[in-house]
Design a protein around this nucleic acid. Structure first.
Lengths: 329, 329
DNA sequence: CGCGTTTACGTCGTTCGTAACGATA
DNA sequence: TATCGTTACGAACGACGTAAACGCG
C-alpha cells in the first residue's frame, strides 16, 4: 500500500469510476492507474470496485471504507506538506476558495488583492457555486476555504469565522409604484409583484420563502439567477422587482434603479469564512482571513486556523460599517 | 513522501532518536533509514531533527507536528489493513492487550482461551503494565486493547466498555487478630497494621490513600507489589495485612489465609475494556469483548468496536455474579 | 577503540510510459 | 467503430543491503 496507490484510488472514485479520466487528473497514464489499482486490491486481498466485464461498475462496501481512510491519509499528507511549505516560507502555492458569486464579486476583490500583494506567487482559484454546493466542496477537499452566508447560526461542516452581517434590499426601477412612498413596502405589497432573486431563494427552507410562508403569502418568482448583474438587468427590463444583497447594489445601478430598505421584513444574513477542521492552512490563508475580518484579533484568527477557535466570536460588523472597523494588530 | 519514510521517521522518534535501534525494530538496515530520513527532510525542505555532529539531538518543533500527522496516517493505514483482513476473514493476526497483572491473571485466561479456540492462529501479546501505564500504551498505539480498573467514572483516552465490578478484600493469616471477630475491621483498626498492597496504592490520588486521608489517618505501607502472589506471600511471612482484589484470592490462599470483607470501607472498582477511538479492530477483538462482557448485547459491542458506543452502558455485574450472567445472542 | 552515522556502490525490484490487444456498447 | 480497460514490454528510477569511511566520546 503506497500513498500513490491510494491517490490513484480516490482519483478513480472521484472521476465516476472512469480510470482514463482519473489518469488525466493525476497526470499519469491510464495503464499505470489500472495496474496500481490491481496491485492495491491484490495486497489488500479484496475488491475495491465491482466490475462488469472490464468496466468498473460500483464501489464495494469495503471499498467505501477504504476510501474514507485513504482520504484521511491523503489529507494528512497534505497537512504535512502545507506545514513544511509554511515553515519554509514558500512563496508559491494554491488557494482554492469556494464561494457564491455575490461574495466573489463584492467581498473578495479587495481582500484577494491584499493577499496577492503579499504573496504574488500564489495562484488563487475561485470556485463559484450555488449556495448549497459551497460547503460540500470544502468537505470533499476540493477547496481550502469556503465563504458562505446564513441566516442565524454558523454553518456546520467546518470551523466558521463570522465576517460581517448584511441585509437584503428591494430593487425597483426609478418611478416604480413601490418607490413612490419613499420607504419600503409591506410584505403584502411585495407579494403582489413578481420577484427576481437568487436561485437559492427557491429552496424550500430559504429564509425568503419562510418569511412569506409565515405571513401566509405565496411569493411569485418571475426569474431567479445566480448573480446580481442578471437580477438588476431583468429588473430594468421590467420583469419584476429584485431582492438583492445590499453589497450588490452599485453606484451604476443607482442611476436608474432604486434600492429600498426592507430590513424589517427579512432577517439579516451573516457571512462566514469556513475552513475544514484539522486541515493545516498555508500562511496566506491567514492573510486572507485577516483581510476579510479586520475586526478580529489576529491571534484569535491564527488560533482558529490551527483548529482552536475561541469560545465565542465577537458579533461581526454590518457591511456598511465594515470599512471603518479595524482590529488590533 | 512515502509511507515507508514516515514509518521510519516515527520508528526513529520512538527509539529515542537512535537510528540503529529503529532500524532493528522495523527490520531494515541503518543506512536505509538514514537515507530515507534525509530524503524526507529534503522533500519537505525542513529539518525533522536537530543534529549534534552526526547524532540526532532532538526533534524540531516542525518535526513534532509532522510526527503527529505521520502517526495519524500510519494508524489509518493500519485501519485499512485491519479492515481488509477482516473482510478476507484472515485467520492469523496479532492481538496486543495492555493490562494490569491482576486482570491478566484472573480475568483474561478464560476469555483468551475462548478467543484462541475460535482463532487459533492469532498471536496474543499480553503487555502487563502498572495501572498508570496501561492507557498510554493504548494511546501510543502499542496496544490494541487495554483493560483497566477505576473507581468511579470510565477512563478517558479511549472508548470504554464496562466489564464488571469488584471489591477489595483484606487478607490476613488465619488466627490473626483482625480475623478474630469474624468480620471486617474499622478503618482505624486497619491503620494500625502495616499494609501490603498494589504499587498503584502509593500514588497520591489512589482511592486507598484517599479513604485514609478523609478519615485523617495515615496508612503505613510495609510493602507494595504488582501482583497478588507477592502480596499473599508477604502476608504469610507476617510482614503485614494485605489488601487485594477479590478475584485474586484463590482457593489455595484460603488454606492458610482469611479474606475479610471490607466492602464498606473502600469504594468498589469497575474494570473497563478500552479501545482507541477510530481504530478498526480485528474480528477477534470483538470475540474477546464478547467473552469479557457476556452480559452485553453483541450488537452494542459490535457498534462500539466501530466507534459508536451506546449512550449508556448497563451497569456491569459484580465479579461474584459474573459467571452466571449471559447476554442475548 | 567502540558506537553510531554518513558515504559509496552495486543490485534488485518496481514504477511508469509506450504500444498493442481485447471487450463492450 | 469508438471508448475504455488489460496485457506486454522496456527503460529508468529508486529502494535497499553490503562495505568502508568518518566523528565523537
Amino acid at each position: 500500500m503506497t500513498l500513490q496507490q491510494l491517490r490513484y484510488f480516490v482519483a478513480i472514485a472521484d472521476s465516476g469510476l472512469n480510470i482514463t479520466l482519473a489518469a488525466e487528473r493525476v497526470h499519469a497514464t491510464q495503464p499505470g492507474l489500472s495496474k496500481q489499482l490491481k496491485q492495491l486490491e491484490d495486497e489488500l486481498g479484496m475488491l475495491l470496485f465491482t466490475r462488469r466485464g472490464k468496466s468498473l461498475e460500483s464501489i464495494t462496501d469495503g471499498g467505501n471504507q477504504v476510501l474514507a481512510s485513504a482520504r484521511a491519509m491523503l489529507a494528512e499528507a497534505g497537512n504535512i506538506r502545507a506545514l513544511a511549505a509554511n515553515l519554509r516560507q514558500e512563496a508559491g502555492g494554491e488557494l482554492r476558495i469556494a464561494t457564491t458569486h455575490t461574495q466573489a464579486r463584492f467581498l473578495l476583490p479587495s481582500a484577494l488583492a491584499e493577499v496577492k500583494r503579499r504573496y504574488p506567487d500564489v495562484v488563487v482559484r475561485l470556485t463559484p457555486a450555488g449556495d448549497a454546493e459551497v460547503l460540500p466542496l470544502l468537505v470533499e477537499g476540493e477547496a481550502d476555504l469556503a465563504i458562505v452566508s446564513t441566516v442565524g447560526p454558523p454553518p456546520s461542516g467546518g470551523l466558521a469565522v463570522p465576517l460581517y452581517r448584511w441585509e437584503r434590499v428591494l430593487i425597483v426601477p426609478k418611478g416604480h409604484a413601490l418607490a413612490a412612498s419613499g420607504q419600503g413596502p409591506t410584505l403584502t405589497q411585495l407579494a403582489q409583484h413578481p420577484l427576481i432573486s437568487y436561485e437559492s431563494s427557491l429552496r424550500r427552507g430559504s429564509s425568503l420563502r419562510q418569511v412569506f410562508m409565515r405571513a401566509e403569502l405565496e411569493p411569485r418568482f418571475a426569474l431567479t439567477a445566480r448573480d446580481a448583474d442578471l437580477i438588476t438587468t431583468y429588473v430594468r427590463a421590467g420583469l419584476g422587482v429584485g431582492i438583492l444583497a445590499e453589497m450588490a447594489f452599485t453606484a451604476e445601478d443607482a442611476q436608474d434603479l432604486v434600492a429600498l430598505d426592507i430590513g424589517t421584513l427579512l432577517p439579516s444574513c451573516t457571512t462566514w469564512l469556513v475552513m475544514a477542521r484539522d486541515r493545516v492552512q498555508r500562511d496566506y490563508a491567514l492573510q486572507l482571513a485577516r483581510a476579510l475580518a479586520p475586526q478580529l484579533d489576529v491571534r484569535d484568527l491564527r488560533r482558529a486556523l490551527n483548529g482552536e477557535p475561541p469560545e465565542r466570536w465577537p458579533d461581526p460588523p454590518h457591511w456598511r460599517e465594515r470599512a471603518k472597523a479595524s482590529g488590533p494588530l
